[in-house]
Design a protein around this nucleic acid. Sequence first.
DNA 1: TTGTAAGCGTTATCAT
DNA 2: ATGATAACGCTTACAA
Lengths: 337, 337
Amino acid sequence: VVKSERPRATLETVARRAGVSRATASRVVNGSSTVAQEIRESVTRAVRELGYVPNTAARSLVTHRSDSIALVLPEAHTRVFSDDQFFPRLIHGVSQELDAADKQLVLMLATEPGSHRRIEKYGLAGHVDGIIVASGHMADPLPAALMGTNIPVVSNERVFGGADIPFVGVDAVGGVAAAVRHLVGSGRRRIAHLAGPQDMPAGIDRLAGYRSAMSEAKLRQAVAVGDFTGASGETAMRQLVDDDPDLDAVVVASDLMAHGALRTLRKMGRRVPDDVAVIGFDDVDLCLYTDPALTTIRQPITEMGRTLVRQILRLSAGEEIQPSLVLPTSLVLRESA
Amino acid sequence: VVKSERPRATLETVARRAGVSRATASRVVNGSSTVAQEIRESVTRAVRELGYVPNTAARSLVTHRSDSIALVLPEAHTRVFSDDQFFPRLIHGVSQELDAADKQLVLMLATEPGSHRRIEKYGLAGHVDGIIVASGHMADPLPAALMGTNIPVVSNERVFGGADIPFVGVDAVGGVAAAVRHLVGSGRRRIAHLAGPQDMPAGIDRLAGYRSAMSEAKLRQAVAVGDFTGASGETAMRQLVDDDPDLDAVVVASDLMAHGALRTLRKMGRRVPDDVAVIGFDDVDLCLYTDPALTTIRQPITEMGRTLVRQILRLSAGEEIQPSLVLPTSLVLRESA
DNA sequence: TTGTAAGCGTTATCAT
DNA sequence: ATGATAACGCTTACAA
């Protein structure tokens, strides 16, 4: 098969073939309403016959838009490349919505401080119409830096420190509180929390939800901190049991840690849920396969990705948006609680 | 804080400030060697002071390069959004290497046939300098279609049907064969294979490795087919045991399926590895946390991503490349075999 | 070694 | 409703 190296059709070619000016051809391509039906058709035909596709470089040179959105993910962030599926699900949602809007997705993994400058520069350069930053730790300098450039930015977490970036989050506080209430409702009283890192909103909010529901129920609080990994879940769980051998429930800040907690509980001879009820957070596939199947707090990651895109698109279109949107979480009941 | 809305610096601005022509400024920015030291410095200074960043649209309009590479992933592909980590790891490797080359990563999820045309068109439009397709099934029409456009394409799997696309794969055949030999070497004789889908190279090759090593060892073969998910691993394992209650080992085509197989074996009262040895494929995080920890065949996904990028970059630079590269797999011994 | 000037393929302004 | 024409910001012959 010989490749047909026929030079790519340009608007000029299309115009000539349709017997109109380049301007008119452009109007048709961009769906302007001020073009005669007849002419519109002949241009459309020329486009089809020539296999014309607009040159985006030329287009964005004049429109100052790129029709692409950057998604920036902190590479080092524990959760990103572990198997908690946050990353793939987020991308999935973002990609879906971007597709629908016919925009491109530019993915940037931020190796901690190294590529920050590169990303900032890229944003500045106007190569993208907007940036979605999936921030990890609070006080991550990147989001604020990005806000400095006058390109639209949204985040998946509220970010402290100077800039307040519009964000789309999930109601972790409410989710954990609901989980605690569920436990209280089923008679549990010595309910501990296996928390995530306290320098990330994801860790902080879940703890806050626990504290609020526990003090509301006037129960004594017990907290151990992990780093969202399975291994940390194992050790933190051991500590929790050592501190209070009579504990009868634990709400864990991630499913991976909950999985670790389950292992520890088995090793320590506690039956789940009979002796100790366990509730995770995230709702990853693994929940179905733990023994027993893990009750968990589900957060709608894919939906978050979609919403994030809708927000950044509005922003880049110059519209006003709500500074924050919080998506609901839900308790998924399985066997462990 | 008032945003300084000072218009973005252009090459013109830089040139004027440095007291040179636009052409010379361009030369400095692009690292041409034919510029006097002194001038180079003053331009560099102007660039810094003005915060100049080249406009890529303008640049690619004239150079016909975009300095970006597309990574196309089949969205529907079971493995992509399950938790086998193929997807994140591949992206990780791709991103790393692209960063190093200062190229952008454009991510496209291909909703099965829907967005194929869109992607093909995008490639055709020359918006990217090259495309990496992570093909799922063989006979996926997309890779071949992309080969039709004269933009460079590489894949992670060999693809049949017409076009032969340069690819970077992993030695699944050798990996599984090595696993079988390991089992034979430790005295196992009734070794079954829990295979993956037979319309994907990933499923086919692993089975081929099994068959080759088994016939070499002159052992009777037993195969059941799953779809790479944990649930399918459970049912296929049950079938395998029902067919041969005395089986003493199983090589599974994915860790997720192996996890399912482990559950079934426990339910059926088989001890692992005492009664039945189990070996998985992939080496996901989960392997450390199964009970017992899963021995598995590790494939270097991240490295594959990096290599894929190196190949596509060469191709887009007009260099010749080897039509195929196969990365080694390795057996990771844990407790299950 | 440096400058001049001609594009690259669009969109957008302004006439007509 | 349509057509000239001037940008958009850059690279690259070609001249000097």
